[in-house]
């Protein structure tokens, strides 16, 4: 690992000013992604601002009946929190489907959202990669692109976002609270991560030196009918090839509302509200779920080694919805 300087921030304001006043500075929380990337010489911050002493470690109910997860709560403490388990079990399941017990104990909710892609070429510093070195080219497009995107990719980058947690947050329509040199703002999860376009080096719409302070979950938790379905190469401890966060609100057999977010298919968790709306007022049935799955994958475009993901995503949507509805008709 390259050398760097280090400071420990005592409050959010200081953290922001520390990171703004040093060149090539980064926040560090659990360190499970940043240190990994620093050891590979992929991220090369020259200054680290330790934010783990900030008072952002609780989970509290909000006035509107939702829940606020502070950015420094660990992934494990979030997944096992009684209110999360009871009211947002989709989120618990998604978090527990990712990484390992050791990593989840260390990883924070803020860091989870900001973890970087698992594109093999991004990790291999002997290859060209626009995300790692802007303007050099993308090795994945013509290379081994098995874990890459089928939706929303660009000619500059076809990477996917690896977070499981973010996929559940997208289905739950969480908002991300941030604080920066310009003050505080909140960003809907749908606008937090971005598509690669011609700036694949930017994973999110977070402005420079902004810190994530909390994640806010709205009241509606879909605790009765939900599924997080994660397809991967082995049963545990692997990133998703395709994952689906599905949530339904049912009145008998009639669907009042459906939420579907896909992971492993794009540079951000993939939602398509106009496709979800097809289910509104419909009966629970495989046929209706298949129609939505087709609508979700419309326009999907695979590459040499990941073409299979299109059909996998379609079938995963149907299965996840069937499971969420608890039906096998």
């Amino acid at each position: 690992m390259r050398s760097f300087s280090y400071t420990r921030a005592q409050d959010v304001k200081k953290a922001v000013s520390e990171v703004s006043s040093h060149e090539d500075a980064k926040f560090i929380a659990g360190g499970t992604n940043l240190l990994d990337l620093m050891k590979y010489d992929i991220m090369k911050p020259r200054h680290l601002v330790d934010i783990t002493r900030l008072e952002m470690k609780s989970i509290e109910e909000t006035e509107g009946g939702g829940l606020r997860l502070d950015a420094l709560v660990s992934n494990a403490d979030t997944a096992y929190h009684p209110l999360v388990e009871e009211r947002y079990p989709l989120l618990s399941h998604a978090i527990l489907a990712g990484a390992t017990a050791q990593l989840r104990n260390k990883a924070t909710d803020g860091g989870n959202l900001l973890q970087r892609t698992r594109c093999y070429y991004f990790y291999d510093t002997t290859t060209l990669c626009n995300k790692r070195e802007p303007g050099t080219g993308c090795s994945a497009i013509t290379g081994y692109n098995r874990n890459h995107a089928i939706l929303g990719h660009s000619q500059h980058c076809i990477a996917t976002h690896p977070s499981d947690m973010a996929v559940a947050l997208a289905a739950l329509e969480a908002t991300i609270q941030v604080s920066g040199p310009e003050g505080e703002r909140s960003i809907p999860i749908a606008d937090f991560h971005r598509l690669p376009g011609d700036k694949p080096e930017k994973d999110t719409n977070l402005a420079e030196n902004e810190i994530v302070t909390a994640i806010e979950l709205p009241k509606k938790g879909f605790a009765r009918h939900y599924t997080y379905l994660k397809n991967r190469d082995r049963a545990s401890f692997a990133f998703a090839l395709v994952s689906v966060a599905a949530a339904l609100e049912l009145d008998g057999d009639t669907i009042q509302e459906a939420r579907i977010a896909l992971g492993g298919v794009a540079h951000k968790p993939w939602r398509k509200p106009e496709a979800e709306a097809l289910l509104q007022g419909k009966e629970v049935s495989r046929e209706h779920f298949q129609q939505v799955a087709d609508a979700y994958l419309e326009g999907a475009e695979g590459f040499q080694y990941n073409e299979f993901k299109i059909e996998l995503a379609r079938r995963s949507i149907v299965r996840a919805l069937m499971q969420a509805a608890k039906t096998d008709q």
Binding site: Y6, R8, G30, G31, T32, L35, T52, L103
Partner: peptide, 16 residues
């Protein structure tokens, strides 16, 4: 075990 919780010591900075 860090404060009783299992973690990966390789991805942790001592100073933190």
């Amino acid at each position: 075990l860090l404060d009783g919780k299992r973690i990966n010591s390789c991805l942790s900075l001592a100073v933190m």
